[in-house]
């Protein structure tokens, strides 16, 4: 569920349809401005504030979804 939402956000912001949840954000052509849009969309859609440093570290859909899942589980 989270992973699907994040995948949709990435697809929209990166303007890509064909990519895997294990692809590296930057290898897909992502840059920091796109990441700030993703940060904003995650806050709006999932109600979670994810720091930019975390988004840079968890640089695949799968990794960031797992991270957000653990944040939501704690709260």
């Amino acid at each position: 569920m989270i992973e699907q939402t994040i995948h949709e956000i990435w697809g929209r912001e990166l303007k890509l349809s064909d990519f895997s949840d294990h692809d590296d954000f930057f290898a897909l052509g992502g840059h920091s401005l796109i990441m700030t849009e993703i940060q904003k969309a995650i806050a709006e859609k999932l109600g979670v504030e994810v720091p930019m440093d975390e988004l840079f570290r968890q640089n695949t859909v799968h990794k960031i979804s797992t991270h957000i899942g653990s944040l939501l589980a704690v709260s």
Binding site: P51, M52, F56
Partner: peptide
């Protein structure tokens, strides 16, 4: 306190 620019923070 962030390595990358974080507008919301």
């Amino acid at each position: 306190p962030s390595r990358h620019f974080d507008p919301r923070l």
